[in-house]
Design a protein around this nucleic acid. Structure first.
Lengths: 197, 197
DNA sequence: CAATATTATTAACAGTGTTAATATAATAAA
DNA sequence: TTTATTATATTAACACTGTTAATAATATTG
C-alpha cells in the first residue's frame, strides 16, 4: 500500500515535470493532454489514472514554480541593503521572474481551475506569495522603526494588487510597449508606494 | 461598391451581436465559431468571409462593450458630488460593471488576440479607458485647486494598475472571497490613493 | 504456473478553429 | 427573359482539443 503510493507519486511527478517543461518553454497554449503524455513517455489516457483532469495537473505545477520563483528572487536580493531597499528589490525580482516566464504568470493569475473550490489552498498561496517573500523585511522595518505596523499593512495590500495589475497589462496587453518603460513604471510606482508618508 | 460595404458591415454586425450575446450570457468559454454562427443565423464558415479569424471577431466586441460600460458608469455617477468624490464613484462603478459581467473583463484584460500588433488601437482603448472616464473630473479638480497636476498624474497611473489588479484577483482567483470584502478593499484602496498628501 | 488485480493503450465521442470544394443566390450581359 | 458570370453561403474535411470505455499488457497473488 505504501509502496503503491510511492510509485503513484513517482508517476504523478513524471507528468508534472513534463507539464512544467512545456509551460516554461512553449507556454500554456501548447499544453495539452497528448503533448504532456508524449513528453512524459506515456499514453494520453494514462494521465487520467493519476489526475482527475488536466487542469488539476496544471495547477500542481504552481507549487514547484513558486519554489523556483523564490530561489530566483533570493539569488537577486541576497546582497540588497536590508529594509525598504530589499523589499523593493524583492518585488522587482518577483516581477522580472514573470517577465522572463510569461507562461508561469498565466498559470498563476490567468488560468482557471475546473473546480475553483478544490484549489483554495493554491489560490491562497498565490495571493499571499509576495507577502511571504517580503515578510521578513517588513518585520525588520517595523522592529527598526522604519515603518509603523499599520503603514506597512497598507503598503503590503497596495502592492498585493498593483503588481499583478502592472504585470497583467504589460504581459497581456503590451502596455507599456517596451520593457524599459515597464521597468521604469514599476520602479516609479514602488518608490512612491514605499517612501510616502 | 458602397452598397456592398454597407451589406458587409451589416453582416459583420450580425456576428458581432451574436458574439456579444454569448459573452454577456454564458461567457468567453462558450464562445465558439459554430455557436456564434448559429445564433447569427448563418453557417460557421460564412463567418470567415467577414472576419479573418474568430479572435478578430471577439475583439470587435470591445468597442461596443466600452460604450455599454460608459453608460453603466454614467448612470451611476451623474448625481455624484463633483471632484474626488465623483472620481471615486466612477472607478467603483467601473469595477462593478466587470463584477456583473466577468465575461467582459476576460475579454478586456485576459483574452489574447491572435495578432497583438493588429489590435494596438483596441489595446490602447482598454489601457486608457479609466483615464477617459475620469478625465473630466480630474480637470475639474486641477482647475479648482483640489489636486495639483503632478499629483493627479500620479494617482491616475496608480489607479490604472491597481484596478485591473484587484479585479483580476477577485474575479479570477476569488481573493478576497466575498463581494463584500472585495468592495471594502476597493473602497479602502481608493480612499487611500485619492486622499493622501 | 494459473487466476486475479493493476496499469497502460487504443478507439471513440463530442467538441474546437480553419480551409477547400461545392452549392446557392444575386448580378450582368445577350 | 434567358444565359453567363460573379459573389456569397454551405457542407465536408482536417487537425486539433479533453475525456471516457473497452481492450491489451503487465504485475501480483494463490
Amino acid at each position: 500500500m505504501v509502496k503503491n503510493t510511492v510509485q503513484e507519486e513517482r508517476m504523478r511527478n513524471y507528468f508534472i515535470q513534463a507539464t512544467k517543461e512545456i509551460l516554461r518553454g512553449e507556454g500554456l497554449k501548447v499544453v495539452s493532454v497528448r503533448n504532456i503524455a508524449e513528453r512524459a513517455g506515456y499514453s494520453y489516457a494514462t494521465l487520467y489514472n493519476y489526475f482527475g483532469d488536466v487542469k488539476e495537473l496544471i495547477f500542481e505545477c504552481i507549487n514547484d514554480f513558486q519554489e523556483e520563483c523564490e530561489e530566483f528572487v533570493e539569488a537577486r536580493t541576497n546582497k540588497s541593503e536590508r529594509g525598504i531597499s530589499k523589499i523593493k528589490d524583492t518585488i522587482i525580482a518577483y516581477a522580472n521572474f514573470f517577465v522572463q516566464h510569461p507562461g508561469i504568470f498565466e498559470l498563476f493569475y490567468l488560468e482557471k481551475p475546473n473546480d475553483i473550490s478544490k484549489k483554495q489552498p493554491t489560490l491562497d498561496l498565490i495571493y499571499n506569495f509576495l507577502d511571504r517573500l517580503t515578510m521578513e523585511e517588513w518585520v525588520y522595518c517595523i522592529k527598526n522603526n522604519i515603518k509603523k505596523m499599520d503603514e506597512a499593512e497598507r503598503m503590503k495590500s497596495e502592492i498585493r494588487f498593483i503588481i499583478p495589475g502592472i504585470l497583467l497589462l504589460y504581459l497581456n496587453r503590451r502596455r507599456p510597449e517596451s520593457y524599459k518603460q515597464f521597468s521604469a513604471e514599476l520602479n516609479s510606482q514602488l518608490d512612491y508606494i514605499l517612501h510616502k508618508e
